[in-house]
C-alpha cells in the first residue's frame, strides 16, 4: 500500500467573513506528482501556507510526513508563488544560507547547491550577485533553493511562471527526475497541459472546496464525451453513416468525431472493420484538462 506523505483533513481557514479554505480534504501519496489546482483566489496558497506551518488553520488537521508541519520543516522543500532571493548576495551564499536555515550543514548545502546549479546550467553563476542574473536564471536559482537541503517532499507553487519554453522543458524534466529519485511532489500550476503531462493525481479547488479529486486518468474518463475520433482513408463521412448507435458525426480537422449512443467503442471498431472501412486512426475521444477546469470552475461560479 502506498504511504501517505501529506494528509489534509477538513481544513478550514477564514479571514474575517471570507472563507479561504472550506472543509478541504485530500491526501498525497509517496512518490507521486500531485496537482493542487484551482483558479486564482481559490485557496491554494493559503492551503500551502498552512501545510508549511506559515499560517494556522481555524480547524482541521494537516499531517506532513506523518507529523505536524512544524516538526518536519527540514524535510520539506518549498517554492512559493511569491518568491525572490537576497538580491545583494552571491548566488552560492544565498543558496547555502537558505539550506542552512533548513538545518543542513554548510558543507552539504554547498555541495548540493553546486550540483544543482550545474544541473540547471548555472554553474558559472555561483559567485555572481543574484541581482546580476536574468529573471529566468533567478527563477531557476529559486527552484534550486527549494532543493539544497535534499527534501523528501517538494511543494512547487507555480514553478513555470515566467520561464521560456526551453526552461519550462528543463524544469519539467527535473520534476520527473526528482520523482524518479523517490521524491513526492505537490505541484500547483495554471498550465493545464503541463499538469496533464506530469501529474498522477489532482485536487481541483474552487472557493476553498475540493470540486474534483482523484486519479487524473479517472477524472478525464469521467468527463470524456461518449465519442470516438476516427480518421478514414478518404476522410469523408460516407463510410461511417448509418451505423447503429452513432448519434452524430462531426468533422474535427482531418478526423471525424462520432458521438455514441447505445454502443461501445469496441463494438463500433468491429463494425468499421466488418464494413471494410479504411481506418487510419481510431481513438476514444478525451477532453483536455483545461476544458474540465473551465467547465467545473465555471459551474461553481454559476451556482452562487
Amino acid at each position: 500500500m502506498t504511504r501517505i506523505v501529506l494528509q489534509v483533513e477538513n481544513l478550514t481557514k477564514s479571514y474575517g467573513s471570507f472563507t479561504a479554505v472550506d472543509d478541504l480534504s485530500f491526501a498525497v501519496h509517496s512518490g507521486e506528482i500531485f496537482g493542487l489546482l484551482g483558479p486564482n483566489g481559490a485557496g491554494k496558497t493559503t492551503t500551502i501556507r498552512i501545510m508549511m506551518d506559515i499560517f494556522k488553520a481555524d480547524s482541521g488537521e494537516v499531517q506532513v510526513l506523518g507529523e505536524h508541519p512544524a516538526a518536519v520543516r527540514a524535510r520539506v522543500g518549498y517554492l512559493p508563488e511569491e518568491r525572490g532571493l537576497y538580491k545583494d548576495l552571491k548566488v552560492m551564499d544565498a543558496l547555502v544560507y537558505l539550506g542552512r536555515l533548513k538545518g543542513t550543514d554548510e558543507a552539504t548545502a554547498r555541495r548540493n547547491a553546486t550540483a544543482w546549479l550545474e544541473r540547471v546550467e548555472l554553474q558559472d553563476w555561483g559567485k555572481h550577485k543574484v541581482k546580476d542574473l536574468s529573471r529566468g536564471m533567478q527563477q531557476k536559482v529559486q527552484f534550486v533553493a527549494g532543493l539544497v537541503h535534499d527534501p523528501e517532499l517538494l511543494i512547487l507553487d507555480e514553478p513555470f511562471q515566467g520561464l521560456d519554453p526551453v526552461n519550462v522543458e528543463m524544469i519539467k524534466n527535473l520534476i520527473r527526475e526528482l520523482q524518479a529519485a523517490g521524491k513526492t511532489i505537490v505541484l500547483s500550476a495554471h498550465q493545464m497541459n503541463l499538469v496533464e503531462e506530469l501529474c498522477d493525481r489532482i485536487v481541483l479547488i474552487s472557493r476553498g472546496k475540493a470540486v474534483l479529486y482523484g486519479l487524473l486518468a479517472d477524472i478525464k474518463r469521467e468527463f470524456a464525451p461518449h465519442a470516438v475520433r476516427v480518421k478514414t482513408g478518404n476522410g469523408t463521412s460516407g463510410d461511417v453513416t448509418g451505423i447503429p448507435g452513432v448519434r452524430e458525426i462531426r468533422p474535427t480537422g482531418e478526423a471525424l468525431l462520432l458521438e455514441l449512443d447505445g454502443t461501445t467503442p469496441q463494438a463500433l471498431l468491429a463494425e468499421l472493420v466488418r464494413r471494410g472501412v479504411d481506418v487510419q486512426s481510431f481513438e476514444v475521444a478525451s477532453v483536455p484538462l483545461n476544458d474540465i477546469f473551465v467547465q467545473v470552475v465555471g459551474q461553481g461560479n454559476d451556482v452562487t
Binding site: R49, M52, D53, I54, A70, R73, V76, Y78, L79, P80, E82, R83, G84, L85, Y86, K87, L98, L101, K102, Q142, A145, G146
Partner: peptide, 17 residues
Amino acid sequence: SEEKTSRVIEIVLSSVT
C-alpha cells in the same frame, strides 16, 4: 522590508518560525 519586498520572506518562513 528588503526581505518583504524581495519576496524571499516566504521561503525563510517555511524554514524557521
